[in-house]
Every structure is written in C-alpha cells, then in structure tokens.
Design a protein around this nucleic acid. Structure first.
Lengths: 189, 189
DNA sequence: TTGACAAGTGGAGATGGCCTCCATATCTTC
DNA sequence: GAAGATATGGAGGCCATCTCCACTTGTCAA
C-alpha cells in the first residue's frame, strides 16, 4: 500500500515539487482560483507530468491531506498515552480548532473537497475519524463521558467547524461548539 | 427588494418553469451532474433565457433556497410563539434534522454550495441564522439555557450536519449532535 | 384592432479550462 | 556506454460555459 513502485529519481523530485507547491497554494487558499494547468507551470513541471502524478485536483489534495492527517493522528495517540482520557479528548478537540485556525486555507480547502461529492478523501478521513473514536471510547471506559452517543457525532461537528471557515466570528463560535460538545458529553444523561 | 420589476408574462412563466425544474433536480441530487445548458433544455427554455434569469448555478440555487428558508423560519416563529422557549428550541433543532433527512438531495446540494466559496447563499442563511439566534436568546432569557455561548455555534453545528450528508450513519449521528448540543446548552456551566 | 415600441427569447458559436498523447529526454542497469 | 525502461512537457482536441444578436412575443396607447 505504501511501497508500490521504486519511482525514478527525477519523477520523485517532480512529485515532491508538486506537493510542496500544492501545500503552499492550499495554505494561501488559492487552490480553486488556479487553473490546474497553471499550477503545473507554477511548480515547474509540464501539464502531462502533473496529470500523471495526480490525475485530479482531488488526488492532489488527498496526497497533501495525508501528511496532515498523519500528524494529527500522531498527536491524538500521544495525548491518549500521556493524559487521562477525558483530558486527552478535551485537549485534542481544542487543539483541532487551534490547528484549523492556524491553517485556515488548508482547512477551508479540505472542507470544500469533503463537501463536494467524491469521498476522494475518505481514506485519510477514516484515519482521523478512528483517532477521535479511540479518544472517545477511552473516555467512556473511564466513566468520564456518556456512552450513549456515537463518536461519529463528534467527527461530524468537527467537519462543521471546518466547513464554516468563512464565518466572521469563526474562532469564537468554533470554541463554543467544542465547549457545548464536551459539556454535553460529560453530562451523565 | 421584492418588487424590482413588473416582469412580462412569458418571462414570469419561464422563470417559474426554471425554478420548478430546479427544485426537482435538486431533490434528485443531480444538480452537479447536469450540464447547465442541458438543464435549460430540460426546463423547456433556451440557454440564453436560463442565463438571463439566473446568471450562475449559485443564483439558481439561491432562488430555490429562498423558499425553503422562508418555510423554516416560519416554522421557528410558530414554535417560539406556541411553546416554552427551551422546548421550542429542542423541537426546532430536531425538526431541522428531520427536514434534512427528508430533503436529502436539497440539503446536500445546499451544503456543497455553502462550502464552495461564494457566500451566494449568505442572505438566505442570515434569515435562518437569525431565527436560530432568536430561539436561543429566548431560552436564555427563560433561564433554561446558559448564556455564555454564541448562538452562532448552534448554526455552525447545523451546517456541519448538513455538510456531512454522505456519512453512512448520518441520521443517528446527526441526532446525537443535536443531543450533545442541547445537553451542553442546558448545563448551567 | 392595430401599429409601434419594449421586453424577452433561443441557440449558434466564441471562449477558455481540462486532459490526452506521443515525440523527446532522462534515468538505470548491465 | 548502449539498450531498455521510465518519465517529461506542451501542443492540441474536447467540451461545458456563457455571450450575443437577429428574431419573436407581449404590452399599451390611440
């Protein structure tokens, strides 16, 4: 799944260049304003090369997304290993908002792609979703959190936060959503 | 704002036909799979006519959206007038999920358009948002709900629910989000 | 009614982005 | 260092979007 083909040296270089430029464009939030052809030139490769590496916009996004998701999942794992379950969950969710705030452009781009048909990002999403589910499950085992709601609800709310990234009062509202979620979860029923 | 121009009889008829067909296509969820030109033919008008009435896909969506939002706002107002504030809020939010469930295609289409840049739907959104804010404010006045969180958070969560419409376990998760939200709101702090 | 002007129509064709294709260049291996 | 494999890039085909205008339809005053 990870080591498909050895990939030639120049190919590797081009792929890297594309990903690097993509991350940059993502963060700037210009991903959808840019002609895909122009993006190739921007990254210093030909159109054909771009398309061979990433057949669609979504595929490119997915590739960028992968790295980010890995980071976030890693973070979840570390928190779970070092903190009491309830605290780990709280810290993780608060951190997600912070993360989205810092990486506005990226969060926005990903949210848009999520909303669009596709499920192109499904694989990456699943990993993140699993991480959240694990955190919630641990908190439930601890008795810190009610066990009668689907952890998917938390993921759903997170998606909502990401999707609403152009609201003028985004940060405050996002923090409040997390607050409500956490307080709702704590309530024994 | 409402009575811009008298609009000729045939124009009115065409406009109506477009809106009717649009609503139909929306509900079927085919809105994005359809060439815009073909949509014109489907509605029985020429391309030019379509574009004169609705310069963009978004404009068309906005027009459809308007009717729906009006209905929902009306519902909010009625609930607020006839039920205790806390109950009105609960009923409204539960109803929103039910509504989105029944009108899957429409909810999905709108969510996609929201996520895309634009803010084309901003005006309609604002009305709905105001309705939610009013419901929350009333509940706060009643002392049934905490006053330290922005009502926008509720709207944000609702957006999330709409945006996540392709999740396999959507309905259950959506209901759970509402549950968490309401329980979080009830908690005195 | 009818004539004359305004309002609206529709679809052919320009525009421009997306993607393919292949002659050429670059790596790798023996 | 030669052969084969792998990758490149950008010219050009394709197709959805949108414009434009010669024509049709509605409206209204006389």
């Amino acid at each position: 799944m990870t080591a498909d083909k050895p990939l030639r040296a120049d190919a590797q270089r081009n792929r890297e260049a594309l990903l690097a430029k993509a991350r940059e464009v993502f963060d700037a939030g210009d991903f959808f304003d840019l002609r895909f052809d122009d993006f190739a030139r921007l990254a210093g490769v030909g159109t054909g090369t771009l398309y061979r590496h990433f057949p669609t916009r979504e595929a490119l996004a997915e590739a960028v997304y992968h790295g980010e998701v890995a980071t976030l999942c890693e973070r979840a794992r570390r928190l779970q290993a070092t903190l009491p379950a309830a605290e780990a969950l709280t810290t993780f969710l608060r951190g997600m908002v912070e993360y989205m705030d810092v990486h506005k452009g990226l969060a926005r781009t990903l949210a848009t792609l999520m909303a669009d048909r596709s499920g192109a990002l499904a694989e990456g999403s699943r990993a993140l979703e699993q991480a959240v589910a694990d955190l919630v499950a641990a908190a439930v085992r601890d008795g810190a959190v009610r066990g009668d709601v689907d952890a998917g609800a938390v993921t759903m709310a997170l998606h909502g936060i990401g999707a609403a990234h152009d609201r003028p009062n985004w940060r405050a509202e996002a923090d409040d959503v997390i607050t409500l979620l956490l307080d709702g979860l704590r309530r024994p029923l």
